[in-house]
Nucleic acid binder design. Structure first.
Length: 208
DNA sequence: CCTCAGATGGACT
DNA sequence: GTCCATCTGAGGC
């Protein structure tokens, strides 16, 4: 009994361990793979929302035509990508959805990992109200299956928009913690980057 | 289950 | 003016 209690406490502590910058200042593909199973935590109005990351994509500016900062192109928007790894990169897409990335590698290397999907973990009721405007138990099967299984949906559920761009990811209001141990994952081509020529075929999407 | 049109606005040329 | 790292609801099967 005592052992069980201790194990539970250790598990909780592990989940609350925030990833530090040195997790992110590494090879982007490695970070993209290792982010699977980690927990995104969003603090908002006294609530602590969380989803487990289940899908990521890597973007590497030096060689990747799909990256906003391909060939080190620096604009007001992409300047965030040149930061040292460990901060957020949030942008608006299609005029109405937001996408959350984590910046990786050293300062000056414009790279990031797009968080493409997750699974709700904590304060699901509050997230449900943000996402659909109703209680979790009221959701249809379709809504349950589409709760945050896409970059725009995930940002909606966690109330993430451009106001959270370029923030450090090791403290509130937005951070990532240790999470679930992942034993295997899938690899594939990235989604919706058909314009990116040869880079469209890079196998830089990872998902559980 | 599937496909597809339309929404919608900022970033960039 | 064009493009876009998307989502939703409607309609078909």
């Amino acid at each position: 009994m005592k052992a069980d209690t201790t194990a539970t406490a250790n598990t909780c502590r592990k989940f609350m361990t925030k990833l530090k910058p040195d997790f992110y200042t590494r090879d982007t593909l490695t970070v993209a793979k290792e982010l699977l199973g980690k927990y995104i935590v969003r603090e908002l109005d006294g609530h602590r929302l969380s989803v487990m990351i289940t899908e990521t994509e890597a973007y590497i500016g030096s060689v990747d035509k799909a990256c906003h900062a391909y060939n080190y192109k620096r604009t007001p928007r992409t300047s965030t990508l040149f930061n040292k790894g460990g901060c957020s990169y949030v942008y608006l897409i299609y005029g109405m959805y937001n996408c959350l990335n984590v910046v990786t590698e050293a300062e000056g290397e414009p790279c990031a990992v797009l968080i493409r999907g997750g699974e709700p973990i904590m304060d699901i009721e509050y997230m449900s109200n943000i996402r659909y405007g109703k209680a979790y138990h009221e959701l249809t099967k379709y809504q349950l299956n589409n709760f945050c299984n896409g970059p725009g949906k995930l940002c909606k559920a966690l109330a993430i928009d451009k106001s959270l761009n370029a923030l450090p990811l090791d403290r509130p209001p937005l951070y990532i913690t240790e999470g679930k141990k992942i034993h295997s994952f899938n690899t594939g081509k990235r989604i919706n980057i058909d314009y990116a020529e040869e880079a469209a075929d890079f196998p830089w999407r990872f998902y559980i």
